[in-house]
């Protein structure tokens, strides 16, 4: 009886482990296949291609040409600052029916981590046309340091202005431009160091000219070279003549930089 029970238990155990194995296998399959399905929804710069997902326009806000241009601008930004920048447009099909603004934020944060790696420097813009909502996510120590609250507010302001005016295609370009502008003003950036040096130079120049103008007052005497103050009023009389010596024409063919000089007999 006891043995039967053991067998039964063993049989159940074997059945359970088979189910567990199957489930694990399914999970593995899903893990392998699902991202491939997800990637199929991303029309531009899919992860599968190996290039960073700078532009993921799932709501068709950009033409292919615009998407290419934006991706190029993002690539330049990433190269310049060693910080990824990306644009995502997503809505109900991607985030889910009846999704909320909170879902949008989570979606973008997950997208950021999945595509660029958790903790890496990156900045992304999500535009959700279904909720008429946008969200900017910044990740990574350096990026967070560069984009202070003030700069984030400026960035949001610029993007919001474009979206409010219906310039949906222009908004991501403005986002990249503004991010470039403000990241360039990062106290740890090369341009900050350059501008600091320029500021020091300007301060030295201001002081130099200030000093020069103050020192110039110490030497004012000069020999007079003219006598205009001593011309008797109404004594100035003049005769004048002019004779045309030569004239010539120059013909310029616009756009071709061809010059021809033609003398005119006078």
């Amino acid at each position: 009886m006891k043995n039967d029970q053991r067998k039964r238990k063993a049989g159940r155990k074997t059945g359970r482990s088979a189910i567990t194995r199957c489930l694990l296998l399914l999970l593995l399959l899903a893990a392998a296949v699902l991202p491939a399905f997800g990637a199929a929804d991303v029309p531009v710069f899919a992860d599968a291609s190996g290039s960073p997902a700078y532009v993921t326009d799932q709501q068709g806000l950009l033409t292919q040409e615009e998407a290419d241009q934006l991706a190029e601008a993002c690539g330049e930004f990433a190269k310049k600052y060693d910080c990824n920048i990306f644009f995502v447009s997503a809505g109900d099909p991607q985030i889910g029916e009846n999704h909320t603004e909170e879902d949008d934020r989570t979606y973008l944060e997950n997208f950021n981590e999945q595509n660029f790696g958790a903790g890496s420097d990156s900045i992304g813009l999500l535009v959700d046309m279904d909720l008429r909502y946008y969200y900017i996510d910044i990740m990574g120590d350096q990026a967070l340091q560069a984009f202070t609250d003030q700069k984030q507010a400026k960035l949001q302001e610029a993007v919001e202005e474009e979206l409010a005016q219906g310039n949906y295609a222009q908004a991501p370009f403005t986002f990249v431009d503004q991010a470039d502008y403000w990241y360039g003003r990062n106290p740890k950036s090369g341009s900050y160091v350059m501008w600091t040096l320029i500021s020091i130079g300007v301060a030295v120049l201001i002081m130099f000219f200030w000093y020069r103008s103050a020192a110039a007052k110490h030497k004012e005497q000069h020999v007079s070279a003219e006598a205009a103050a001593y011309v008797r009023p109404d004594s100035w009389q003049r005769n004048q003549s002019q004779r045309r010596r030569r004239s010539f024409l120059i013909n310029t063919e616009e756009g071709r930089q061809i010059w021809q000089t033609r003398p005119i007999n006078v």
């Binding site: 008797r232 009389q237 003049r238 002019q242 004779r243 045309r244 030569r246 004239s247 120059i250 013909n251």
Partner: peptide, 18 residues
């Protein structure tokens, strides 16, 4: 077409320095 007219200029004058 760019036309250049070059003129010879002569000026004579008198004045009284006082």
């Amino acid at each position: 077409y760019t036309k250049h007219d070059v003129f010879e200029i002569e000026r004579e004058g008198t004045l009284q320095i006082q």
